[in-house]
Design a protein around this nucleic acid. Structure first.
Lengths: 217, 217
DNA sequence: ACAAAATCGTACATATTTGTACGATTTTTG
DNA sequence: CAAAAATCGTACAAATATGTACGATTTTGT
């Protein structure tokens, strides 16, 4: 278990897998192609992962671990609850529309009709991890009177709909490029504004970041 | 151009293509598999369509034509503008989460790294057709004072986000089954309620269909 | 009914992918 | 340093997909 070259090799394999997926799609992402790209023999890949789906599943898990850490760190360092939520938006949006997330989703779409294990693996991070996180924040915000909502779970769902919408599917079918940081910020800000219009207590027009008129295209 | 058996044959091919896609996914959806399923020789398929992507593109186009017709009919038969929008919701939601739409989106995801033509073909119907439709309705509704919004395009985007959200991507990666009519209705109603909370004129609590408390799970 | 076109069934060549095998070489471990 | 384990490069077998070819048969147009 020498964690010296092995870690570096594993990293090279991950990078190669993402690169091949991004360039050639799931169909062409054979273990052979990935092995060549990573400058590793295919036998090693088979020994390590067994097959294609298992390799991608391990990518999904690694990505999920990283992402979850990042999200929790973001949440915990925000002072006010609503500020924490506002800070979460861009990070979350950036994560779910990143090239990494998108190629994995494409792989899951391709894996349908095959093992069908990739989709659930992704969902386990997606909805099943993110929504509760947001839900917790909203529950606390609700208890402290910063927002009004009877069901934090529903409110979290609404927030995520406003934030993410159909960006992922559009990225997956290849009609949308990766968002720029500015676009991310703008969209996250808009989502927050809209969400507060729905859930702010009474008619007190909450301001958080400068209201920032959106330039109507 | 005998439009007798040819039409029936074409229908059989379409059905077979959808069936194979649904069962085995894009990867296994070879022209051979489709031909066998349709009880048609593969040479015919190659002569008619040329290749896999072209066949699926023709599916996309046919589906888009049908869907657009259905949507426009739904819109035009509604009396009041908001009622028309409310009637549109379930139809739209049903369309974009239907098995047909989903397998085509999966195909587009799989086609990435190949021809990359499927995605744009789908988007041309998706966003590029639906959004303007909703936009028009909202513009009229805005002019007649039924709703308040400065940008109909933005409002349409919000409505669609609330209505559809991430249902498509979840369907595509296979973690969500086709929605029941009841779920469709409920979600469309919720989306409409939320949308009106954002865009209803002043503090007049619009009611449209019976407000219908959602049972908090 | 008869000629022309479309379709069928089948076969075929080519390329690709998936796993596995094995001797040679490198790296790790004792 | 020496034995053991991991990895490499290459080869190979089986399966599958793609696209084409061709004679036989069916369907269509006149």
């Amino acid at each position: 278990m020498a964690t010296e070259k092995q870690i570096e090799r594993r990293q090279r394999i991950e990078d190669a897998a993402y690169a091949v997926l991004k360039e050639s799609g799931y169909k062409s992402a054979s273990l052979l192609a990935i092995a060549q790209r990573a400058a590793v023999s295919n036998e090693t890949l088979y020994k390590w992962y067994g097959n294609k789906q298992a390799l991608f599943r391990s990518l999904v898990e690694a990505n999920a671990r990283e992402a979850k850490l990042l999200l929790e760190r973001t949440l915990h360092e925000g002072g006010d609850l609503l500020d924490a939520l506002a800070a979460l938006g861009p990070v979350l949006l950036s994560l779910v529309t990143s090239d990494k997330a998108i190629v994995l989703n494409r792989a899951a779409a391709g894996d349908f009709g095959d093992t069908k294990t990739l989709g659930p693996a992704i969902a386990q991070f997606g909805r099943d991890t993110i929504a509760p996180l947001v839900c917790d924040v909203l529950q606390m915000a609700s208890r402290s009177g910063r927002i009004i909502c009877d069901s934090p779970a529903d409110a979290a769902d609404i927030y995520l709909r406003l934030l993410i919408g159909d960006l992922q599917i559009r990225r997956v079918i290849g009609v949308l490029d990766e968002l720029s940081p500015a676009e991310i910020e703008r969209r996250a800000g808009d989502a927050m504004t809209l969400f507060l219009r729905l859930h702010a207590p009474a008619n007190q027009t909450q301001s958080l970041s400068p209201p920032k008129e959106r330039p109507s295209r």
